[in-house]
Write a protein that binds this DNA or RNA. Structure first.
Length: 855
RNA sequence: GGGCGAUUAGCUCAGUGGUAGAGCACUACAUUGACAUUGUAGGGGUCACAAGUUCGAACCUUGUAUCGCCCACCA
């Protein structure tokens, strides 16, 4: 691909520098130029390849990395040729007049442009029929009228019934063409009569073939007008650009009195991907792959589930294309790529050397020149004829000259000048890269592969072709084709803020290199992962990248904090032996996160996987675990400290692993930096974490603690109590369990909720803010600190919220149909919730009464 | 014309039948404390619209509107 792209760039450079074009320059000289300008012309591509680690030394004709591949490509061509699946055909192709090469349908982009539709009259040659003197046709491309071979009308169109078979005179070219009947014209549209230019329009081509109408070429490879006996175009059109020819045709048609009007019309025009100019349908000889035959097993593979698309909706797109597949044109009129392994020589029709058929040529398809010559010698019977390989193809006229000059003692042989479509070789990627056709160890190990990850826009270019090629060439013991991969993961396309695909030509791209320079590679990768939702494209917003850059910093700082507290990786750490509730809690949360991340990766839900890791690291580990560890680290219980350190080290290790797919560079670095003894392996080779500790009691205790702290903080904030002010906590109605929990977590509560001293009493102290946490009411004595109207308002608001929820839940449970139809679990959940709400409502009401009584 | 997808907080987007979510932005407070690339608390949503299915709908069905993409395109 880089080679082809380079050629495109070099051709543009040639044009800009007013150098002769490639065709005038010759192949040899052109390759020199590519070589000479490699840095400035192909430098970008070259650098990209270097980044990818490709070893390319820009040796002539091909990259060194392609050496083995080239052989495989030529082998495949020869095999398919021998099987009759590759053939040469004269057909209409999409032609790029700038690069002067055939391109495939999917390299053509249709755009709506403002255009015109002109009407011309073609007079009937033998005078009026039914009072009709002329037939009026409409066209958006007036210049093509010079190549018309017929005028078509619908057989059911009564207006023209009696005109079918009559001749009309073509203005300017002065040819007589027939009026024919065909299903193609729409009687409702325009005049119902359509001009047929078989050599320059795809629909017309089909009509012309069906009706044996001659195809009359009007243009050369650069889309400049040509003058031939067949097209009878006046001499002064010769060499005119198609758009200049259009103007001239319009002028002359008007002068001749055949102009019948014009209207504005938006027309869809096909543009070439690479050149950006309007493509021209062109009648040419090209090599084709019988894609219909090759596609059948590839369709079956998806139909029968041996290859799956993720998300599945892309299978429709795949089928839609594969079932309507056209012959695949693989010739490209370029000079940089895999050259088609076909040689031609004069055709022979008998035993005698004299029996040359001057109009036609014999084809020798072989993987190398030597082998082609062997075949050629065989063909020419070794009748004392010496084969001479010549550079340029020889036409039938040239052949006569050759015979005049050399006699029949020397036979010219020449190679097809065209190269293969890049996707022809790309389609072989799953096996050609592994040393095929040799049965190498690599091939045995890595073929078939498992998942191909790509964007939907190359399902056809690449995915479908890999499947066709693999199924055809790679067979199992029973001779059944092998799929190159079992899953095709379609990742989202990154679009710009308006939803358009980014492209060089539109200039709307966000350069990933710039984003990486600004935010870091891992940040960009993590952002793309967390935004990679199945079935939806990504509109990339750089502020999101900044957000996830901060996440990386957070992890870095967490590691630094751990280091400062002598958190050290302990190779003998056993999670199941951990004792403290806090540590058992984080291990439990870790287990849950491991499951969540793993399952989502396995389901290709990378956004959910990275999101779960993000939440665990920031909102669980950093926000709570590390905060709760601070009093432990600051305390003097050496055993507790040691266990906390070992646990934190273990959790960090698991975090690095979970995040490694999404932030490989940073986690690999942290993995190495935090090693106390050598890790013995890279993080990317380390075993994926598995869930272990599941301690719901510990989880409940710490989650209760978190709830308590949040409750106190919330009240403090709402009551505008300065964070610097520490205050006592008075607990009313605590159960034995709550008392025990408070006892073990006193230090944590005091630190995180800015509390000084926890006591238990039977009734709330006068002037307290009161919070209901579980069965207990937690009070902050605020007498003299705040206005109690605020506390009343706060409690009333809370009570209103509870009332609202209570109504909803009790309403549900009062509904007989709900109780009768809803699943048990849901009903139980609602009952539980109702009980909780009821208890809380009671406590909050009591608290409110108390505050009011104080007032 | 056919197909596919989207419409949820100011913005970018998660959420496929059971308590409406994230990041950014916004408001208030906090700074020798791992981290201001920060912390705490908070405000903000008739889930485009309408009808239906259901005990229950952002989610399922049908229709409407708007937007996007793909395919085929009236010469």
């Amino acid at each position: 691909h880089a080679g082809i792209a380079t050629q495109m760039v070099v051709e543009r450079q040639l044009a800009e520098r007013n150098e002769p074009d490639r065709h005038a320059m010759g192949r040899e000289k052109f390759v020199e130029k590519v070589w000479e300008w490699k840095e400035e012309s192909g430098g970008l591509i070259f650098n990209q390849l270097k980044r990818l680690g490709a070893s390319c030394d820009w040796s002539r004709e091909r990259f060194t990395m392609d050496e083995g591949l080239s052989d495989a490509v030529l082998d495949v061509f020869v095999k398919l040729y021998d099987e009759g699946l590759i053939y040469k055909d004269k057909r209409l192709v999409n032609w790029d007049p700038v690069f002067q090469t055939a391109i495939s349908d999917i390299e053509v982009e249709s755009k709506d442009v403002d255009g015109h539709m002109w009407s011309f009259a073609y007079p009937l040659v033998d005078g009026p029929v039914d009072g009709i003197e002329e037939i009026v046709i409409a066209t958006t491309r007036p210049e093509t009228m010079l190549g018309d071979g017929a005028v078509a009308v619908h057989p059911s169109d009564d207006r023209y019934k009696n005109l079918i078979g009559k001749m009309v005179r073509l203005p300017i070219a002065e040819r007589e063409i027939p009026i024919i009947a065909d299903e193609y014209p729409d009687p409702e549209f325009g005049t119902g009569a359509v001009k047929i230019t078989g050599a320059h329009d795809f629909n017309d081509y089909e009509v012309a073939r069906r009706n044996n109408i001659p195809l009359i070429p009007l243009m050369d490879g650069e889309a400049k007008m040509i003058v031939t006996p067949e097209n009878n175009v006046p001499e002064h059109y010769k060499g005119l650009d198609r758009f200049d020819a259009r103007k001239l045709v319009l002028k002359e048609v008007e002068e001749l009195g055949f102009y019948r009007g014009v209207e504005d019309k938006v027309i869809a025009q096909p543009f070439g991907d690479r050149s950006g100019v309007v493509i021209e349908p062109m009648l040419t000889d090209q090599w084709y792959v019988d894609a219909k035959t090759m596609a059948a097993p590839a369709i079956a593979s998806v139909k029968e589930g041996r290859t799956k698309f993720v998300p599945q909706m892309w299978e429709n797109t795949y089928f839609n294309w594969m079932e309507n597949i056209q012959p695949w044109c693989i010739s490209r009129q370029l000079w940089w790529g895999h050259r088609i392994p076909v040689w031609y020589g004069p055709k022979w029709s008998g035993d005698s050397l004299q029996a040359i058929e001057f109009g036609s040529f014999e084809t020798f398809c072989a993987p190398s020149e030597e082998e082609a010559l062997v075949a050629a010698r065989k063909y020419y019977h070794g009748k004392g004829t010496e084969l001479v390989v010549v550079d340029a193809p020889i036409s039938s006229v040239g052949m006569k000259d050759w015979v005049d000059t050399h006699g029949l003692q020397k036979m010219p042989i020449w190679r097809d000048p065209d190269v293969l479509d890049t996707w022809f070789s790309s389609g072989l990627w799953p096996f050609s890269t592994l040393g095929w056709p040799e049965n190498t160890d690599e091939l045995k190990t890595y073929f078939p592969t498992s998942v191909v990850s790509t964007a939907f826009d190359i399902i056809f270019f690449w995915v479908a072709r890999m499947m066709m090629m693999s199924l055809h060439f790679m067979k199992d013991e029973d001779g059944k084709g092998i799929e190159p991969f079992h899953t095709v993961f379609m990742h989202p396309l990154v679009r710009d803020k308006d939803g358009a695909t980014m492209s060089m030509s539109k200039g709307n791209g966000i350069d990933p290199l710039e984003l990486m320079d600004e935010y870091g590679t891992d940040s960009l990768r993590f952002t793309l992962a967390i935004m990679a939702v199945q079935g939806r494209d990504v509109k990339l917003d750089p502020t999101r990248v900044a957000g996830y850059r901060n996440f990386g910093t957070k992890l870095w700082n967490a590691t630094r904090f751990a280091e400062m507290n002598e958190v050290k990786h302990d190779p003998d750490f056993n999670p199941d032996a951990v004792k403290s509730q806090l540590n058992r809690w984080i291990l439990t949360e870790l287990s849950k996160s491991v499951v969540e991340v793993t399952e989502n990766i396995e389901k290709y839900r990378f956004n959910d996987a990275s999101g779960a890791a993000y939440k665990f690291v920031w909102n669980t580990f950093c926000d709570w675990h590390l905060e709760l560890l601070k009093p432990v680290f600051a305390g003097d219980d050496a055993a507790a400290k040691a266990e906390a350190q070992a646990t934190a080290a273990y959790v960090l290790d698991q975090i690095y692993k979970l995040l490694h797919p999404f932030m490989p560079f940073m986690t690999e670095e942290l993995w190495a930096e935090t090693a106390t003894t050598p890790r013995g392996e890279l993080l990317c080779h380390a075993a994926w974490p598995t869930p272990n500790v599941r301690d719901e009691a510990a989880a409940n205790e710490i989650n209760w603690l978190i709830g308590l702290v949040q409750e106190i903080r919330s009240v403090r904030s709402e009551m505008n109590i300065k964070p610097s002010l520490k205050m006592p906590l008075v607990v009313v109605g605590a159960s034995a369990e709550t008392k025990a929990r408070l006892e073990t977590n006193t230090a944590a509560v005091e630190r995180l909720a800015r509390i000084e001293g926890i006591s238990h009493t039977d009734s709330a102290p006068e002037g307290s803010a009161q919070m209901v946490v579980g069965e207990a009411t937690v009070c902050l004595p605020l007498k003299g600190l705040v206005d109690f109207a605020d506390e009343i308002a706060r409690l009333e608001k809370e009570l209103a919220g509870i009332e609202k929820d209570f109504k909803i839940v009790s309403g549900k449970l009062a509904n007989e149909k709900f109780v009768a139809n809803a699943p048990e679990a849901i009903i139980a959940e609602n009952r539980e919730r109702l009980a909780e709400l009821e208890a809380k409502r009671e406590k909050v009401s009591e608290a409110l009464e108390r505050v009011k009584s104080f007032g």
